[in-house]
Amino acid sequence: MGNVAKHTIGVLVDNEAGVLARVIGLFSGRGYNIESLTVAEVDVEKELSRITVVTSGTPMVIEQIKAQLSRLVPVHKVSDLTTDGPSVERELALIKVAGSGEQRVESLRIADIFRARVVDSTSESFVFEMTGSTDKLNAFISLMIPLGLTDVSRTGVVAISRGPNPL
């Protein structure tokens, strides 16, 4: 059967009503796992959107997921960014930390090390913006917990292949 592994899949779709529901319905209906999913229009003229979905499964399940996605009528292209050559993955998070005194200073210091930017600040809080790999975000967020972490909003992974070629 093979081992369960994490895969990042890029899907180019017609940006039409219901397309996201089709993709999500496919995952829930067939019992596939979604670790994260992002979507946005990427070509206004051609009305194309790009979905990046992080999922996990055995090699046979991952093949099924790709075949099932390709079968959806509005899907142009499906690419397994984990296996189809090297790729870059990034995620963005907005992280709210409330506190005062030494803790507040400490959070700012760590943010600096992680290259997180302050995008909002009040006398008792910061909102940090941070981009990076999922692991890096996780590391930063766990460091913020004892320093007064109150809220997190994350985009989920977006990914693109390295080199000159498109999806």
Binding site: M60, E63, Q64, A67, Q68, S70, R71
Partner: peptide, 11 residues
């Protein structure tokens, strides 16, 4: 004719 039928139940 349907690629998703391949390796779905049986490799």
């Amino acid at each position: 004719i349907d690629p998703s039928s391949i390796n779905k139940n049986i490799e």
